[in-house]
């Protein structure tokens, strides 16, 4: 009985902030303006503009996930191989920027990349030609990688830390070189963390609209932007919800992936 009482606040929390909002999205997504049932809001993903925005978002977020993985794995490996104290200090440095507001950090990139921004200022001082960096797909990918990289590093680092040194020593004693140890011991054992990291980068990157607005100059329309505009400008909550449900489909796929590879919940970020 008392245990049930203790669970009460969490149940209210879950109902109020997860289940009810989710149900509302499903309700809006499956109805039209007059409240009648329709699949039109979901099928709307097939129109050329929405399809293009979805594929562009998928492309950019996949690319930034791959870049994050390529940057994060060696880093996590290096951190793991250092002695614990120094390793965790570097991790601390790494998550330090996350304590600052996400919007502010993205705005800071705007100031860096602008035509009269910091980077071009340095280039001018060195008598090098100015670069147009902002308002390009590259700037969006940079923004995604910068903002979401810690979410890739931490789960991989956590899983690597749990691998027993003796396993590695055994591999080396049996004559495995560094490359063999990496591909046959380190990587397979760290797969839960890698999958978890991929999801934690891919999902927010797929749904972002702030990064593409601020660093893409709103010239590049991602599916997140479409949804945001339907809610704030278009006053079409039904269409916005319908498209959100389509995105949820991709998120469910990633959750299924986690469930398959990360059975013990090892690949958690914190």
């Amino acid at each position: 009985m008392s245990k049930k009482l203790l669970a009460g606040p969490y149940l209210i929390w879950m109902a109020g902030f997860t289940i009810i909002p989710l149900a509302l999205i499903v309700f809006y997504g499956l109805t039209d303006g007059d409240g009648g049932f329709t699949l039109a809001n979901i099928l709307a993903i097939a129109t050329p503009e929405h399809r293009k925005a979805l594929f562009l978002a998928l492309g950019l977020s996949l690319l930034s996930t791959v870049i994050c993985l390529l940057l994060a794995y060696p880093l996590a490996l290096i951190l793991r191989r250092r002695n614990i104290g120094r390793g965790s200090f570097v991790v601390f440095i790494f998550i330090l920027p996350m304590w600052m507001n996400f919007l502010l950090r993205t705005l800071a990139w705007q100031t860096l990349l602008e035509r009269s921004g910091v980077i071009n200022g340095i280039l001018t001082a060195l008598h090098l030609p100015n670069q147009s960096l902002i308002n390009t797909p590259g700037a969006i990918i940079l923004g995604m990688v910068y903002n979401f990289l810690p979410f890739m590093v931490l789960p991989i680092y956590n899983v690597l830390c749990k691998i027993d040194d003796n396993t590695i020593n055994a591999a080396q004693d049996l004559g495995a070189n560094f490359f063999q140890t990496l591909t046959r011991i380190w990587f397979p054992l760290s797969l839960p963390g890698v999958i978890s990291g991929i999801t934690m980068v891919f999902v927010p990157a797929l749904t972002t609209f702030v990064i593409s607005n601020l660093l893409g100059g709103s010239k590049i329309l991602l599916i997140g932007n479409v949804i945001e505009q339907e809610f704030t400008r278009g006053s079409n909550w039904n269409l916005g919800s319908g498209l959100s449900l389509v995105l949820m489909f991709f998120i469910l796929i990633s959750m299924a992936l986690i469930a398959k590879y990360d059975k013990n919940g090892e690949g958690t970020a914190f």
């Binding site: 925005a53 329309l221 505009q229 400008r233 079409n236």
Partner: peptide, 17 residues
């Protein structure tokens, strides 16, 4: 009117995408 508003919104989306 809502219908014309929707038309504007759709055309704007076509511009943006």
């Amino acid at each position: 009117g809502d219908e014309v508003d929707a038309l504007y919104n759709n055309y704007w989306k076509e511009v943006k995408s």
